[in-house]
Simulated assay, not measured.
Amino acid sequence: MAEFNGDPRGEGRRIVVVASRFNEGITVPLAEGAVSALVGRGVAFDDVDVLWVPGAWELPVAVRRALATGRYDAVVVVGAVVRGDTPHFDFVAGEASRGIMEASRDFEVPVTMGLLTTDTMEQAEARAGGAHGNKGADAALAALEMLDLFDRAFADDGSEEDA
């Protein structure tokens, strides 16, 4: 039996952070946390791009366009959808999540989720550098870990192409 784990190492990686502007007081710290975590783990500052989209609904198409360029090893998604008094939250949060997952699956590239879906603004603030850490930074580290895991698990046997 072989067992593989990845380390969040960023040397030589090119990463894009796709960020939603809506709820900017939350999303700016998430994006900053992601960039800081990437650079802190060895990604060159010039090898990190940040794409700002209007809201969470626009995240999936921006992720797909970024991946279609072939420039990026991984995508880190950050945003915040906070529940309100209407069902808008359910549609936006669910469909944005689905679109992000589908992009990762279709392109076979790590796309990690720093899209907060919270009931209150206080919960979002706690996850954007507050009491619960910074989920943008967590998503960035997860992207690097997945890249290293893929390198270790599929580096020299070519089994992915043979499957």
Rank of each mutant, 00 (worst) to 15 (best):
R127Q: 11
G136S: 09
E122N: 12
A19M: 08
A139Y: 11
F45D: 14
R14W: 05
R105S: 10
I26W: 05
F45A: 14
R9P: 00
V48W: 00
E58R: 00
I26R: 10
E32P: 00
D138P: 06
G114I: 08
D157I: 08
G70W: 06
I100T: 08
D85P: 04
V76K: 03
V48K: 03
N5V: 15
R9Y: 09
V18R: 01
F91N: 05
S104C: 12
V81N: 06
A56S: 12
A2Q: 15
F150S: 13
R9T: 14
N134P: 12
D106N: 09
G129C: 10
T69Y: 00
V18F: 02
D85T: 14
L147Y: 05
E145V: 07
V50H: 02
D49C: 03
V92M: 00
D151K: 09
A68I: 02
M101Y: 12
F4I: 09
V17M: 03
V48C: 02
S104P: 10
D90C: 05
P29N: 04
T120K: 10
F22M: 05
F89T: 12
T27S: 06
V63P: 03
V111I: 06
D157K: 13
L59T: 01
A19V: 08
V18P: 01
V16A: 14
D85N: 14
F107P: 00
D156G: 15
P54R: 03
A139H: 12
P54N: 02
E24G: 13
G42L: 03
F4W: 11
V75M: 07
E24Y: 08
D85M: 12
D46G: 07
R41K: 15
D162G: 05
L51Q: 11
G33H: 06
D106F: 04
P87R: 07
E108M: 13
A139M: 12
V50R: 02
L115S: 10
